[in-house]
Amino acid sequence: MVRVIKLEEITERLVIRPYTTNDYRNWYNQYSHCYPARNRFDEGKIDLSDYTEAWFDEMVNKHQQLIDKDVAYILGVFRKDDGAHVGVIDLSTLMRNEFQWGRIGYTILNTYWEHGYGKEAVKAVLDMAFTQLGYHRIEAHINMDNTASIKLAESVGMEFECVRRDFIFEFGEWTDHLVYFRNAKQRRTLA
């Protein structure tokens, strides 16, 4: 089992940590101010009518259970100066034992694009993955035409490895994904 010392990263402009039940209003307000979707990878403005405080509390509880089981680490990204919720990053354990292998996913709300928050947050969470959570390898699985996600992965030192054919069922079909990766050894040599 992985021993977690602290599950929080503080960068120059951001605080990245698990959600708490106190985050509901902030989370709700930021999602309610999103712009309409700008591309097929952007959720954009969503119908929040089912996303009650009780629903959020249950989500926070489920996230904590995933953390306790080392299945996934779902982390809110908050601006340090005003506490605004700007996005979410998740780490999922693909396999432990001799692999210590995980996957990273990231979303910055479209109202906060083009401020460098994605790069700052992903870089910090990769560091957390290697230093606190004991992963050796982290992959990002990216749609072939998701240029913004590709640029972000490359900007934090992730390397293109391969294309996984018919990798995930989304958008009504099996789709190919690019695989970018970074490992703990690279962290030491690139830091």
Results as ranks from 00 to 15, higher is better:
101 W>A: 00
75 L>E: 02
68 D>H: 06
87 G>R: 01
49 S>L: 05
111 T>A: 13
116 G>R: 01
49 S>N: 14
87 G>N: 08
35 Y>P: 00
53 E>G: 06
31 Y>H: 15
66 L>R: 15
81 D>H: 09
107 T>V: 14
68 D>W: 04
54 A>R: 14
112 Y>T: 00
110 N>H: 02
55 W>I: 04
52 T>H: 12
108 I>Y: 01
108 I>N: 00
58 E>R: 15
98 E>W: 04
84 A>S: 15
106 Y>C: 06
49 S>V: 04
65 Q>V: 13
76 G>V: 08
108 I>Q: 01
37 A>D: 03
104 I>T: 07
83 G>W: 11
100 Q>M: 09
100 Q>W: 02
30 Q>G: 00
59 M>K: 13
112 Y>A: 00
109 L>W: 02
35 Y>M: 11
96 R>K: 12
90 D>C: 10
81 D>G: 03
92 S>M: 06
83 G>Y: 12
87 G>F: 03
53 E>P: 06
36 P>R: 07
71 V>F: 08
43 E>H: 12
45 K>W: 06
91 L>N: 01
56 F>M: 07
78 F>I: 05
54 A>F: 15
72 A>S: 14
59 M>D: 08
75 L>K: 11
114 E>R: 15
42 D>K: 02
94 L>S: 11
67 I>V: 14
45 K>L: 15
84 A>F: 09
101 W>K: 09
82 D>P: 02
29 N>Y: 04
49 S>F: 01
39 N>T: 10
76 G>P: 09
38 R>W: 00
104 I>Y: 02
49 S>H: 11
53 E>H: 08
37 A>I: 08
43 E>Q: 11
110 N>F: 05
78 F>D: 02
105 G>N: 07
111 T>H: 03
61 N>A: 15
102 G>P: 01
52 T>W: 12
96 R>Q: 07
64 Q>G: 00
29 N>R: 10
107 T>D: 04
97 N>D: 14
59 M>W: 14
92 S>H: 04
93 T>P: 00
61 N>F: 13
99 F>Y: 15
41 F>R: 11
114 E>T: 10
60 V>M: 10
40 R>H: 10
34 C>H: 02
62 K>D: 07
68 D>Q: 14
63 H>L: 05
111 T>Q: 14
106 Y>E: 05
98 E>V: 10
63 H>R: 13
56 F>A: 12
90 D>T: 12
30 Q>Y: 03
91 L>Y: 00
95 M>Q: 15
44 G>P: 02
39 N>E: 01
94 L>E: 03
68 D>K: 13
84 A>T: 05
29 N>G: 10
30 Q>F: 01
27 W>H: 04
91 L>P: 02
68 D>M: 10
33 H>Y: 04
97 N>V: 12
49 S>Y: 04
27 W>Q: 03
52 T>L: 09
102 G>L: 03
39 N>A: 07
30 Q>D: 01
112 Y>E: 12
63 H>A: 13
62 K>Y: 11
116 G>C: 07
68 D>V: 02
62 K>M: 12
35 Y>F: 13
44 G>I: 08
63 H>S: 13
80 K>W: 05
112 Y>N: 00
72 A>F: 08
114 E>F: 09
30 Q>H: 09
32 S>G: 04
